[in-house]
Design a protein around this nucleic acid. Structure first.
Lengths: 199, 199
DNA sequence: GACGAAGCGGAACACTGTTCCGTATGTTAA
DNA sequence: TTAACATACGGAACAGTGTTCCGCTTCGTC
Protein backbone atom coordinates (compact mmCIF):
# COMPACT_ATOMS: atom_id res chain seq x y z
CA UNK A 1 0.00 0.00 0.00
CA UNK A 2 2.44 2.64 -1.24
CA UNK A 3 0.70 5.83 -0.21
CA UNK A 4 1.58 8.81 -2.38
CA UNK A 5 1.93 11.62 0.14
CA UNK A 6 4.42 14.46 -0.30
CA UNK A 7 7.99 13.27 -0.63
CA UNK A 8 9.76 12.56 2.63
CA UNK A 9 6.63 12.51 4.75
CA UNK A 10 6.13 8.80 4.92
CA UNK A 11 8.13 7.06 7.63
CA UNK A 12 10.24 5.28 5.05
CA UNK A 13 9.11 1.71 4.38
CA UNK A 14 11.64 -1.02 3.72
CA UNK A 15 12.72 -0.59 7.30
CA UNK A 16 12.24 -2.95 10.16
CA UNK A 17 9.03 -2.54 12.09
CA UNK A 18 10.76 -1.56 15.32
CA UNK A 19 12.79 1.05 13.48
CA UNK A 20 9.68 2.69 12.06
CA UNK A 21 8.08 2.60 15.49
CA UNK A 22 11.10 4.19 17.09
CA UNK A 23 11.23 6.95 14.51
CA UNK A 24 7.66 7.92 15.31
CA UNK A 25 8.27 7.66 19.04
CA UNK A 26 11.30 9.91 18.66
CA UNK A 27 9.39 12.52 16.69
CA UNK A 28 6.68 12.65 19.34
CA UNK A 29 9.14 12.75 22.19
CA UNK A 30 11.17 15.48 20.51
CA UNK A 31 8.07 17.56 19.84
CA UNK A 32 7.06 17.24 23.49
CA UNK A 33 10.52 18.11 24.79
CA UNK A 34 10.79 21.08 22.42
CA UNK A 35 7.58 22.45 23.90
CA UNK A 36 8.80 21.94 27.46
CA UNK A 37 12.45 22.87 27.23
CA UNK A 38 12.87 24.57 23.88
CA UNK A 39 14.55 23.49 20.69
CA UNK A 40 17.94 23.56 22.38
CA UNK A 41 17.10 20.79 24.82
CA UNK A 42 19.80 18.16 25.35
CA UNK A 43 19.62 15.16 23.05
CA UNK A 44 19.81 12.92 26.10
CA UNK A 45 16.56 14.43 27.36
CA UNK A 46 14.80 13.48 24.16
CA UNK A 47 16.29 9.99 24.20
CA UNK A 48 15.15 9.52 27.78
CA UNK A 49 11.65 10.80 27.03
CA UNK A 50 11.39 8.40 24.10
CA UNK A 51 12.85 5.58 26.13
CA UNK A 52 15.58 4.84 23.60
CA UNK A 53 19.36 4.97 23.63
CA UNK A 54 21.54 7.69 22.20
CA UNK A 55 22.66 5.50 19.33
CA UNK A 56 19.10 5.12 18.18
CA UNK A 57 18.45 8.82 18.03
CA UNK A 58 21.61 9.46 16.03
CA UNK A 59 20.89 6.69 13.55
CA UNK A 60 17.50 8.12 12.71
CA UNK A 61 18.58 11.76 12.85
CA UNK A 62 22.31 12.17 12.22
CA UNK A 63 22.26 15.61 13.80
CA UNK A 64 20.06 17.77 16.01
CA UNK A 65 19.09 19.88 13.05
CA UNK A 66 17.72 16.86 11.17
CA UNK A 67 15.51 16.10 14.12
CA UNK A 68 14.24 19.65 14.35
CA UNK A 69 13.57 19.73 10.62
CA UNK A 70 11.63 16.48 10.85
CA UNK A 71 9.56 17.72 13.77
CA UNK A 72 8.57 20.97 12.10
CA UNK A 73 8.44 19.78 8.50
CA UNK A 74 4.65 19.85 8.36
CA UNK A 75 4.43 23.39 9.64
CA UNK A 76 7.10 24.66 7.30
CA UNK A 77 5.31 23.02 4.40
CA UNK A 78 2.04 24.60 5.47
CA UNK A 79 3.70 27.99 5.62
CA UNK A 80 5.22 27.51 2.19
CA UNK A 81 1.91 26.47 0.70
CA UNK A 82 0.11 29.39 2.30
CA UNK A 83 2.10 31.81 0.15
CA UNK A 84 0.43 31.30 -3.21
CA UNK A 85 -3.03 30.89 -1.73
CA UNK A 86 -2.73 34.12 0.24
CA UNK A 87 -1.62 35.85 -2.93
CA UNK A 88 -4.81 34.63 -4.56
CA UNK A 89 -7.16 35.44 -1.72
CA UNK A 90 -5.83 38.64 -0.17
CA UNK A 91 -6.91 42.15 -1.16
CA UNK A 92 -3.49 43.07 -2.46
CA UNK A 93 -0.03 41.54 -2.83
CA UNK A 94 1.09 43.70 0.06
CA UNK A 95 -1.71 42.39 2.24
CA UNK A 96 -0.73 38.87 1.26
CA UNK A 97 2.88 39.55 2.18
CA UNK A 98 1.78 40.95 5.54
CA UNK A 99 -0.42 37.98 6.30
CA UNK A 100 2.26 35.57 5.26
CA UNK A 101 4.92 37.13 7.46
CA UNK A 102 2.41 37.02 10.32
CA UNK A 103 2.14 33.30 9.77
CA UNK A 104 5.89 32.87 9.67
CA UNK A 105 6.48 35.00 12.75
CA UNK A 106 3.80 33.15 14.68
CA UNK A 107 5.46 29.91 13.81
CA UNK A 108 8.87 31.08 14.98
CA UNK A 109 7.84 32.73 18.22
CA UNK A 110 5.77 29.79 19.40
CA UNK A 111 8.77 27.44 19.21
CA UNK A 112 11.08 28.35 22.05
CA UNK A 113 14.51 29.05 20.72
CA UNK A 114 13.84 27.99 17.15
CA UNK A 115 14.68 31.40 15.75
CA UNK A 116 17.86 31.30 17.79
CA UNK A 117 18.81 27.91 16.44
CA UNK A 118 18.09 29.09 12.92
CA UNK A 119 20.89 31.64 13.07
CA UNK A 120 23.26 30.05 15.54
CA UNK A 121 26.63 30.04 13.82
CA UNK A 122 28.21 27.38 15.97
CA UNK A 123 26.94 23.78 16.33
CA UNK A 124 25.74 22.00 13.23
CA UNK A 125 22.54 23.90 12.72
CA UNK A 126 23.43 24.60 9.14
CA UNK A 127 21.00 21.96 7.95
CA UNK A 128 18.22 23.79 9.73
CA UNK A 129 19.17 27.15 8.27
CA UNK A 130 19.43 25.64 4.82
CA UNK A 131 16.14 23.78 4.92
CA UNK A 132 14.10 26.71 6.13
CA UNK A 133 15.62 29.09 3.65
CA UNK A 134 15.50 26.76 0.66
CA UNK A 135 11.86 26.07 1.28
CA UNK A 136 10.61 29.52 2.17
CA UNK A 137 12.76 32.00 0.29
CA UNK A 138 11.14 31.22 -3.09
CA UNK A 139 7.70 31.68 -1.56
CA UNK A 140 8.68 34.96 0.01
CA UNK A 141 10.26 36.01 -3.25
CA UNK A 142 7.03 35.41 -5.09
CA UNK A 143 5.08 37.56 -2.65
CA UNK A 144 7.74 40.23 -2.78
CA UNK A 145 7.77 40.35 -6.57
CA UNK A 146 4.01 40.55 -6.73
CA UNK A 147 4.00 43.46 -4.29
CA UNK A 148 6.71 45.24 -6.26
CA UNK A 149 4.87 44.73 -9.54
CA UNK A 150 1.68 46.06 -7.98
CA UNK A 151 3.62 49.15 -6.93
CA UNK A 152 2.91 48.43 -3.27
CA UNK A 153 6.52 48.41 -2.18
CA UNK A 154 9.83 49.69 -3.46
CA UNK A 155 12.01 47.23 -5.37
CA UNK A 156 15.52 46.31 -4.35
CA UNK A 157 14.96 44.01 -1.41
CA UNK A 158 15.88 40.36 -1.77
CA UNK A 159 13.72 37.63 -0.27
CA UNK A 160 16.72 35.97 1.36
CA UNK A 161 17.65 39.10 3.21
CA UNK A 162 14.10 39.81 4.28
CA UNK A 163 13.56 36.27 5.53
CA UNK A 164 16.72 36.31 7.58
CA UNK A 165 15.86 39.73 8.92
CA UNK A 166 12.46 38.57 10.02
CA UNK A 167 13.95 35.41 11.49
CA UNK A 168 16.49 37.43 13.41
CA UNK A 169 13.86 39.77 14.79
CA UNK A 170 12.12 36.75 16.29
CA UNK A 171 15.13 35.80 18.39
CA UNK A 172 14.93 36.36 22.08
CA UNK A 173 13.69 35.25 25.43
CA UNK A 174 10.05 34.34 25.11
CA UNK A 175 7.39 36.57 26.53
CA UNK A 176 9.35 39.68 27.33
CA UNK A 177 6.58 42.28 27.24
CA UNK A 178 9.12 44.94 26.29
CA UNK A 179 10.14 43.11 23.14
CA UNK A 180 7.51 42.13 20.62
CA UNK A 181 8.97 40.77 17.38
CA UNK A 182 5.66 41.37 15.64
CA UNK A 183 5.84 45.12 16.12
CA UNK A 184 9.33 45.25 14.65
CA UNK A 185 8.46 43.06 11.70
CA UNK A 186 5.53 45.36 11.01
CA UNK A 187 7.93 48.30 11.12
CA UNK A 188 10.25 46.53 8.71
CA UNK A 189 7.44 45.96 6.23
CA UNK A 190 6.39 49.57 6.59
CA UNK A 191 9.92 50.54 5.72
CA UNK A 192 9.56 48.47 2.58
CA UNK A 193 6.58 50.55 1.48
CA UNK A 194 8.25 53.86 2.10
CA UNK A 195 9.77 55.69 -0.80
CA UNK A 196 13.35 56.56 0.12
CA UNK A 197 13.57 60.01 1.67
CA UNK A 198 16.78 61.96 1.72
CA UNK A 199 15.87 64.09 4.75
CA UNK B 1 48.30 59.48 42.22
CA UNK B 2 44.58 58.72 42.27
CA UNK B 3 43.60 59.52 38.70
CA UNK B 4 39.97 60.51 38.32
CA UNK B 5 38.94 58.74 35.13
CA UNK B 6 35.46 57.33 34.54
CA UNK B 7 34.41 54.86 37.19
CA UNK B 8 35.57 51.31 36.62
CA UNK B 9 38.08 52.15 33.93
CA UNK B 10 41.20 52.21 36.01
CA UNK B 11 42.81 48.78 36.57
CA UNK B 12 41.90 48.87 40.24
CA UNK B 13 44.81 49.76 42.48
CA UNK B 14 45.23 48.19 45.90
CA UNK B 15 45.93 44.97 44.04
CA UNK B 16 49.18 43.15 43.76
CA UNK B 17 51.41 44.29 40.92
CA UNK B 18 51.31 40.93 39.15
CA UNK B 19 47.54 40.91 39.39
CA UNK B 20 47.26 44.27 37.66
CA UNK B 21 49.70 43.13 35.01
CA UNK B 22 47.77 39.94 34.41
CA UNK B 23 44.50 41.80 34.09
CA UNK B 24 45.97 43.94 31.32
CA UNK B 25 47.55 40.93 29.64
CA UNK B 26 44.22 39.15 29.73
CA UNK B 27 42.35 42.08 28.21
CA UNK B 28 44.84 42.26 25.35
CA UNK B 29 44.83 38.52 24.78
CA UNK B 30 41.04 38.39 24.85
CA UNK B 31 40.77 41.26 22.38
CA UNK B 32 43.19 39.49 20.03
CA UNK B 33 41.40 36.15 20.32
CA UNK B 34 38.01 37.78 19.78
CA UNK B 35 39.30 39.21 16.52
CA UNK B 36 40.70 35.86 15.41
CA UNK B 37 38.06 33.42 16.61
CA UNK B 38 35.07 35.53 17.54
CA UNK B 39 33.55 36.44 20.88
CA UNK B 40 32.56 32.83 21.46
CA UNK B 41 36.12 31.54 21.57
CA UNK B 42 36.93 29.03 24.33
CA UNK B 43 38.18 30.51 27.59
CA UNK B 44 41.13 28.14 27.43
CA UNK B 45 42.23 29.75 24.18
CA UNK B 46 42.36 33.15 25.82
CA UNK B 47 44.17 31.76 28.84
CA UNK B 48 46.75 30.11 26.59
CA UNK B 49 47.24 33.28 24.53
CA UNK B 50 47.75 35.28 27.69
CA UNK B 51 50.03 32.61 29.12
CA UNK B 52 48.05 32.30 32.33
CA UNK B 53 46.06 29.54 34.00
CA UNK B 54 42.31 29.13 33.99
CA UNK B 55 42.03 30.09 37.64
CA UNK B 56 43.56 33.45 36.89
CA UNK B 57 41.12 34.30 34.17
CA UNK B 58 38.16 33.41 36.35
CA UNK B 59 39.41 35.41 39.30
CA UNK B 60 39.66 38.55 37.21
CA UNK B 61 36.51 37.95 35.19
CA UNK B 62 34.04 35.70 37.01
CA UNK B 63 32.26 34.92 33.75
CA UNK B 64 32.82 35.18 30.01
CA UNK B 65 30.40 38.07 29.82
CA UNK B 66 32.44 40.11 32.28
CA UNK B 67 35.49 39.65 30.10
CA UNK B 68 33.62 40.68 26.97
CA UNK B 69 32.21 43.73 28.72
CA UNK B 70 35.66 44.72 29.91
CA UNK B 71 37.14 44.32 26.43
CA UNK B 72 34.49 46.44 24.73
CA UNK B 73 33.79 48.90 27.54
CA UNK B 74 35.59 51.77 25.82
CA UNK B 75 33.73 51.34 22.57
CA UNK B 76 30.37 51.08 24.27
CA UNK B 77 31.14 54.23 26.22
CA UNK B 78 32.14 56.00 23.04
CA UNK B 79 28.90 54.96 21.41
CA UNK B 80 26.90 56.14 24.39
CA UNK B 81 28.66 59.49 24.42
CA UNK B 82 28.18 59.94 20.69
CA UNK B 83 24.41 60.14 21.18
CA UNK B 84 24.11 63.63 22.69
CA UNK B 85 26.83 65.09 20.53
CA UNK B 86 25.24 63.80 17.34
CA UNK B 87 21.96 65.29 18.49
CA UNK B 88 23.70 68.62 18.79
CA UNK B 89 25.62 68.45 15.53
CA UNK B 90 23.33 66.68 13.08
CA UNK B 91 20.89 68.43 10.76
CA UNK B 92 17.86 66.89 12.43
CA UNK B 93 17.06 64.52 15.28
CA UNK B 94 16.24 61.89 12.67
CA UNK B 95 19.62 62.33 11.03
CA UNK B 96 21.23 62.02 14.45
CA UNK B 97 19.32 58.82 15.11
CA UNK B 98 20.40 57.45 11.75
CA UNK B 99 24.04 58.28 12.32
CA UNK B 100 23.95 56.86 15.80
CA UNK B 101 22.47 53.55 14.70
CA UNK B 102 25.13 53.42 11.99
CA UNK B 103 27.74 53.70 14.72
CA UNK B 104 26.09 50.99 16.77
CA UNK B 105 25.65 48.64 13.83
CA UNK B 106 29.25 49.13 12.76
CA UNK B 107 30.38 48.27 16.24
CA UNK B 108 28.31 45.08 16.32
CA UNK B 109 29.13 43.74 12.88
CA UNK B 110 32.86 44.21 13.27
CA UNK B 111 32.95 41.97 16.35
CA UNK B 112 32.42 38.41 15.20
CA UNK B 113 29.55 36.87 17.06
CA UNK B 114 29.04 39.72 19.50
CA UNK B 115 25.48 40.34 18.37
CA UNK B 116 24.87 36.63 18.75
CA UNK B 117 26.24 36.58 22.26
CA UNK B 118 24.14 39.60 23.13
CA UNK B 119 20.94 37.67 22.60
CA UNK B 120 22.03 34.16 23.40
CA UNK B 121 19.51 32.88 25.91
CA UNK B 122 21.62 30.07 27.29
CA UNK B 123 25.03 30.44 28.97
CA UNK B 124 25.56 33.30 31.36
CA UNK B 125 25.57 36.09 28.84
CA UNK B 126 22.95 37.94 30.83
CA UNK B 127 25.58 40.31 32.17
CA UNK B 128 26.47 41.26 28.62
CA UNK B 129 22.87 41.83 27.59
CA UNK B 130 22.24 43.88 30.71
CA UNK B 131 25.33 46.05 30.40
CA UNK B 132 24.79 46.96 26.77
CA UNK B 133 21.15 47.72 27.26
CA UNK B 134 21.53 49.65 30.50
CA UNK B 135 24.17 51.82 28.94
CA UNK B 136 22.71 52.39 25.50
CA UNK B 137 18.93 52.31 25.87
CA UNK B 138 18.79 55.73 27.60
CA UNK B 139 20.90 57.22 24.83
CA UNK B 140 18.73 55.69 22.15
CA UNK B 141 15.65 56.84 24.03
CA UNK B 142 16.90 60.41 24.00
CA UNK B 143 17.44 60.33 20.24
CA UNK B 144 14.07 58.71 19.72
CA UNK B 145 12.24 61.26 21.82
CA UNK B 146 13.92 64.12 20.03
CA UNK B 147 12.93 62.69 16.67
CA UNK B 148 9.35 62.22 17.81
CA UNK B 149 9.16 65.74 19.19
CA UNK B 150 10.53 67.09 15.94
CA UNK B 151 7.78 65.24 14.12
CA UNK B 152 10.34 63.20 12.19
CA UNK B 153 9.02 59.83 13.25
CA UNK B 154 5.84 58.40 14.63
CA UNK B 155 5.64 57.91 18.40
CA UNK B 156 4.99 54.57 20.05
CA UNK B 157 8.31 52.79 19.68
CA UNK B 158 10.33 52.09 22.80
CA UNK B 159 14.10 52.44 22.80
CA UNK B 160 14.53 49.00 24.38
CA UNK B 161 12.62 47.32 21.62
CA UNK B 162 14.40 49.23 18.89
CA UNK B 163 17.82 48.49 20.35
CA UNK B 164 17.13 44.80 20.60
CA UNK B 165 15.69 44.78 17.12
CA UNK B 166 18.78 46.41 15.71
CA UNK B 167 20.99 44.08 17.71
CA UNK B 168 19.11 41.09 16.39
CA UNK B 169 19.38 42.25 12.81
CA UNK B 170 23.15 42.26 13.22
CA UNK B 171 23.27 38.57 14.05
CA UNK B 172 24.66 36.26 11.44
CA UNK B 173 27.64 34.76 9.76
CA UNK B 174 29.99 37.55 8.87
CA UNK B 175 30.37 38.75 5.34
CA UNK B 176 27.48 37.01 3.63
CA UNK B 177 26.95 39.29 0.64
CA UNK B 178 23.30 38.29 0.54
CA UNK B 179 22.67 39.54 4.05
CA UNK B 180 23.57 43.09 4.95
CA UNK B 181 22.33 44.14 8.40
CA UNK B 182 22.77 47.77 7.47
CA UNK B 183 20.16 47.60 4.72
CA UNK B 184 17.62 46.08 7.07
CA UNK B 185 18.29 48.55 9.85
CA UNK B 186 17.80 51.33 7.33
CA UNK B 187 14.49 49.76 6.38
CA UNK B 188 13.50 49.55 10.02
CA UNK B 189 14.19 53.23 10.54
CA UNK B 190 12.27 54.05 7.38
CA UNK B 191 9.36 52.14 8.86
CA UNK B 192 9.62 54.38 11.89
CA UNK B 193 9.11 57.44 9.72
CA UNK B 194 6.13 56.07 7.88
CA UNK B 195 2.70 57.04 9.04
CA UNK B 196 0.68 53.87 9.59
CA UNK B 197 -1.23 52.93 6.45
CA UNK B 198 -4.29 50.75 6.58
CA UNK B 199 -3.96 49.51 2.98
C1' DG C 1 13.83 -23.14 14.50
C1' DA C 2 18.00 -21.09 12.72
C1' DC C 3 20.51 -17.72 10.51
C1' DG C 4 22.01 -13.10 8.88
C1' DA C 5 21.28 -8.51 8.71
C1' DA C 6 19.32 -4.46 10.68
C1' DG C 7 18.82 -1.98 14.73
C1' DC C 8 19.59 -0.97 19.64
C1' DG C 9 21.77 0.74 24.02
C1' DG C 10 24.89 3.14 26.41
C1' DA C 11 29.81 3.41 27.53
C1' DA C 12 33.35 6.30 25.93
C1' DC C 13 35.37 10.33 23.64
C1' DA C 14 36.06 15.21 22.73
C1' DC C 15 35.00 19.64 23.87
C1' DT C 16 32.83 23.08 26.48
C1' DG C 17 32.43 26.35 31.11
C1' DT C 18 33.51 26.46 35.97
C1' DT C 19 35.34 25.30 40.66
C1' DC C 20 38.84 24.28 43.95
C1' DC C 21 43.00 23.95 46.38
C1' DG C 22 48.06 23.22 46.91
C1' DT C 23 51.76 26.12 45.65
C1' DA C 24 54.29 30.30 44.39
C1' DT C 25 54.84 35.19 44.70
C1' DG C 26 54.47 40.00 46.04
C1' DT C 27 54.17 42.95 50.11
C1' DT C 28 54.99 44.45 54.55
C1' DA C 29 56.68 44.65 59.12
C1' DA C 30 60.51 43.56 62.12
C1' DT D 1 67.45 41.32 55.07
C1' DT D 2 64.42 38.31 56.13
C1' DA D 3 60.37 36.25 58.00
C1' DA D 4 55.56 35.87 57.73
C1' DC D 5 51.28 36.39 55.63
C1' DA D 6 47.74 37.48 52.49
C1' DT D 7 47.11 37.50 47.76
C1' DA D 8 47.22 35.47 43.35
C1' DC D 9 48.49 31.68 40.37
C1' DG D 10 48.18 27.17 37.76
C1' DG D 11 45.97 23.46 36.30
C1' DA D 12 43.75 19.15 37.74
C1' DA D 13 39.13 17.87 38.37
C1' DC D 14 34.07 18.29 37.87
C1' DA D 15 29.80 18.78 35.34
C1' DG D 16 27.27 19.20 31.16
C1' DT D 17 27.19 19.27 26.24
C1' DG D 18 27.20 16.70 21.21
C1' DT D 19 28.80 12.63 18.84
C1' DT D 20 30.91 8.01 17.82
C1' DC D 21 31.46 3.21 18.24
C1' DC D 22 30.77 -1.55 19.00
C1' DG D 23 28.97 -5.75 21.38
C1' DC D 24 24.51 -7.50 21.88
C1' DT D 25 19.53 -7.98 20.73
C1' DT D 26 15.72 -8.40 17.81
C1' DC D 27 13.32 -8.81 13.49
C1' DG D 28 12.40 -10.91 9.13
C1' DT D 29 13.13 -14.79 6.33
C1' DC D 30 14.08 -19.40 4.73
Amino acid sequence: MPTTGPAGEVPARCKRADAQRNQQTLLSAAAAVFVDSGVGAPIREIAARAGVGLGTIYRHFPTRADLVVAVYRHQVEACAEAGPSLLASADSPLAALRQWTDLFVDFLVTKHGLANALQSDSSGFDTLHTYFLDRLVPVCGQLLDAAVNAGDIQPGTQAYELMRGIGNLCIGRDSDPRYDPRRLVRLLLQGLQQQPQSS
